[in-house]
Amino acid sequence: MSDEQVTKKFLYVNRKAPYGTIYALESLEVVLIGAAFEQDVSLAFIGDGVYQLTKGQDTKGIGVKNFSPTYRALGEYDIQKIYVEKESLEARGLTLDDLQHLVYEDEDDDWAEKDAIKLVSAKELGEIMEQQDVVLSF
């Protein structure tokens, strides 16, 4: 998209639960639009942000659109790095099995389907954060 072919490392930091406020949904909208710019994109889910990825969301009773299936489309937008902070998940009594299974197809490995979610410790996430050029938090 950009004439100079600048590639920056973009990290989207999600620290808020879905539905209680609109941040999670509107953050996802930025990620989807941003994918067209072919930057080096990562997503991080920390704190209550991990609740965005849980399985089995059913919003019929609150009259709000369930946007959780959209996370499963992230792979089609070539988003391959979805970091979930281990400490946050554990503090909430959750494991990876409680989260949706998010995958992408690896172009460099004969389009093999791979897990997009990577469970990382706070310190590992800190290292990843330090490598970023642009950090968008919502």
Binding site: E85, E87, S88, K123, G126, E127, E130
Partner: peptide
């Protein structure tokens, strides 16, 4: 908010 504690858990030495 857990913003500060979460930040300090992630932030690296020297930041």
């Amino acid at each position: 908010s857990d913003g500060l504690s979460s930040c300090l858990q992630c932030a690296l030495a020297g930041s």
